[in-house]
Nucleic acid binder design. Structure first.
Length: 723
DNA sequence: TTTGACTTGTCTGCC
DNA sequence: ACAAGTCAAA
């Protein structure tokens, strides 16, 4: 039997998944088992072999990046455009549904998406307007409550509670929702919830989509939350085929409502579904795989899966104990330079960290060594203060009732509309149940404001109206340019001094360029360019604008590394309190999630994995001493290789598993730790490289900056620590 | 109302 | 360490 071209180069299990008949399917895909490949080939199979129209396929991913990649790969396989196939993130697809049926869900046509930062500001303001003590009721907590309820599919009226604390939270939720509805604003959770309600309550709409999407495929299913799952169930109806692909060991979004249990739920809700396990790993060396398997085996309640590879052992995993975070960064840069000098490409290396705050030191070290790098995530382009200011003006032009945008820029740059005036406008808006814009207009017209404030507010209103008239015919690029200049934003940032202000000016200019280059894609033909651009800004936050073509080291959090692979991977800050994070140590479930995150990180590495930690680290401006992460002790000792400074002093293998005190051993023996900087009266400053013996007679090796490396007896050398 | 000095909370993560 | 929030002076 000759193999179908779409099945060539696939292993037996993969072929089984790709060529399965209609019906439900769960693909349990381990890290590096060719999961994306299977999904892409499956879609191509449906279109080419089974003759399904691309219109009948719905594919859901978690990131825009994954969606774009998947579409491209399917088109490549099919050999033609797959226009009409719906592929995107849950949020992107929900947005599309709401746009198409805005009237059915009671939204204005030009509704806008607010990000969690906007959301928090809005909530903070509402808490104040309810005369609640904002110490007792932090906006963050209320935000968490509201989003949590929305993720569960709950509206305020569904919540019945006798707990006074929750009653107040419910009150905030109610008021928040009213404000959003009035202003035409939709938060991330609301996108999903509204789209779900649309499908649930509107039979015509529901049946339309149920009849259309015969095949529904969901990637990263372990990260779906309740509302996303309910969404899938509604679309599936009783006749459509649902394929879910996931890995319970890579579930790392429990904190935002993801439920691994959805996998079990799927098996009981979708009767007769076939389960296919992909366990052959094509990515990592067997050493890396063995280590990762060993770590994850400490978790309980796994669906069970044994990853294997027929690849070679490769090098052992390196573990480096930095003296502090600067030393850790220095070591990483040195290893990357070594990799590059041996012919490796920088793009093939990635530095992963637990939290974004860790990136700064790494950046500095790379910058210093002139090694190009690229950061994913973190503070993204459209999240920047100056960009959000400019976008707020654009939003007001599109919709005067956008209270969040008005709040943001009515006095940015300062134009004499202070807190007192704003409080009066807010109060009027609340009493009259209208937007800030309308209330401001009313107060100016009815002379409810004192002379100076009235002038200030009046001229702001006029400014916006005039700007809108003038720019009616403008292209998006010209419009943004005009807005930035006429609003005084550009002048304001130009007047500020310092490097920071300069970047802000640059960013504003870049925003204009982004507007000039922006084009609507197929799915957005129903929108105005302005609205489409604003939606892009919220849903994608500007991933694509970095220079992808330069050969650069990749920096990102462990979370954003999911789904990616690199020949050389550094996992940094492997310390108790950092990774696993302090917050995760209290609840047992959270610790297992951290362990899965560790598993995700390790399995990103193809050839070489380097783990690093710092014995001393500055956090919140305080020097802290962390122990090495417990996850290190879960790695088999024979796959680990401990590196010490430039001399690569190795610990005898009899240390085997590391106890957490071992890393401070050198300090106890000599009073100095490896990597520490010291000053000698004659030789100047240097770094401790190695040590020998114990007590005052011990000798230490120091690499002096000016005179090179020397062995000195601790008792006689008059050394002073340098900090 | 604005500005600058001072105090306080924050560092998980993301669509 | 940094940013956001608070408070008093101009």
């Amino acid at each position: 039997m000759s193999t179908h071209p779409l099945l060539a180069d696939l292993n037996e299990r993969q072929q089984q998944a790709v060529s399965a008949n209609d019906g439900h399917m769960l693909v349990l895909a381990g890290a590096g088992s060719g999961k994306t490949r299977v999904l892409v080939h499956r879609i191509a199979w449906l279109i080419q072999e089974r003759q399904y129209s691309p219109f009948s396929v719905l594919a859901v991913t978690f990131t825009n990046k994954a969606a774009t990649e998947m579409r491209g790969r399917v088109e490549q396989l099919v050999g033609s455009s797959v226009r009409g196939m719906w592929i995107g993130t849950f949020h992107g697809l929900a947005h599309r549904l709401l746009r198409a049926h805005y009237m059915d869900v009671g939204l204005p046509q030009n509704f806008q998406i607010i990000d969690s930062d906007d959301q928090q500001r809005l909530i903070k303001r509402l808490i104040k307007s309810l005369n609640l003590d904002d110490k007792r009721w932090p906006a963050k907590q209320a935000q968490w409550y509201i989003n949590g309820k929305k993720d569960e599919g709950l509206r305020p009226q569904h919540i019945e509670t006798y707990d006074p604390t929750e009653q107040t939270l419910k009150e905030i939720y109610t008021l928040y929702q009213e404000s959003c509805d009035r202003a035409g604003l939709v938060d991330f959770a609301e996108l999903l919830l509204r789209a779900h309600e649309l499908l649930r309550n509107n039979r015509i709409v529901r049946e339309h989509y149920q009849n259309r999407f015969r095949h529904i495929l969901v990637d990263e299913f372990q990260d779906t939350n309740s509302i996303q799952y309910a969404w899938i169930r509604l679309l599936a109806g009783s006749q459509n085929s649902v394929t879910i692909v996931g890995d319970d060991d890579q579930s790392i979004y429990g904190w935002r409502g993801a439920k691994v249990e959805n996998i079990h739920q799927f098996l009981s809700d979708f009767e007769g579904s076939e389960t296919i396990r992909l366990e052959q790993n094509y990515r990592s060396t067997s050493t890396i795989l063995r280590a990762a398997n060993s770590v994850i085996s400490n978790n309980s309640g796994r669906l069970g899966k044994d990853l294997w590879t027929d690849g070679n052992d490769g090098e052992p995993i390196s573990l480096y104990a930095g003296f502090n975070e600067m030393d850790e960064a220095r070591y990483i840069v040195a290893r990357i330079e070594e990799w590059r000098d041996q012919g490796g490409s920088l793009q093939d290396s990635a530095i992963l960290y637990r939290s974004n705050a860790q990136s700064r030191i790494l950046e500095e070290a790379l910058l210093h060594a002139r090694v190009p790098y690229r950061i994913y995530g973190g503070l993204r382009f459209f999240d920047r203060q100056e960009i959000k200011d400019a976008l707020a003006y654009l939003r007001i032009l599109g919709n005067r009732d956008d209270d969040a945008a008005i709040e943001r820029v009515i006095n940015t740059p300062t134009r004499g509309i202070g807190n007192r005036t704003m409080d009066m406008i807010r109060q009027a808006a609340r009493e009259r149940a209208e937007s800030l814009w309308q209330a401001a207009k009313y107060m100016v017209n009815e002379k409810q404001l004192a002379g100076r404030a009235r002038n200030a507010v009046g001229s702001f209103l006029d400014f916006i109206e005039n700007l809108d008239d003038e720019t009616e015919e403008f292209s998006l690029g010209r419009l943004s340019d005009e807005v930035i200049k006429k609003s005084g934003l550009m002048a304001m940032y130009e007047a500020e001094k310092g490097e920071k202000a300069e970047t802000r000016v640059e960013n504003l200019k870049e925003l204009v360029t982004a507007c000039e280059n922006f084009t609507l894609d197929d799915a957005e033909e129903d929108m105005t360019p302005l609205n489409a651009f604003l939606a892009h800004a919220s849903l994608e936050a500007g991933e694509e604008q970095a220079d992808e073509y330069q050969d650069a080291v990749q920096l990102m959090t462990l979370h954003s590394a999911k789904g990616l692979e690199f020949p050389l991977v550094f996992m940094t800050g492997v310390e108790e309190g950092l990774f696993p994070s302090q917050q995760s140590m209290d609840e047992p479930g959270r610790l297992e999630e951290e362990r899965r995150l560790c598993y995700v990180g390790m399995t990103r590495a193809m050839e070489k994995l380097v783990l690093t930690y710092a014995e001393q680290r500055r956090i919140y401006g305080q020097e802290l001493f962390h122990k090495v992460s417990r996850f290190i002790s879960e790695i088999p000792a024979d796959t680990l290789h401990e590196v010490r400074m430039q001399t690569k002093v190795e610990k005898p293998s009899s240390y085997g598993r590391f106890n957490n005190a071992a890393s401070h051993e050198s300090f106890e023996q000599t009073g100095y730790s490896l990597g520490q900087r010291v000053r000698h009266p004659k030789f100047g400053e240097g770094t401790v490289l190695n040590y020998e013996g114990t007590g005052p007679q011990s000798r230490i090796q120091i690499n002096f900056d000016n005179v090179g490396s020397k062995w000195l007896v601790v008792a006689y050398a008059r050394l002073d620590p340098v900090f």
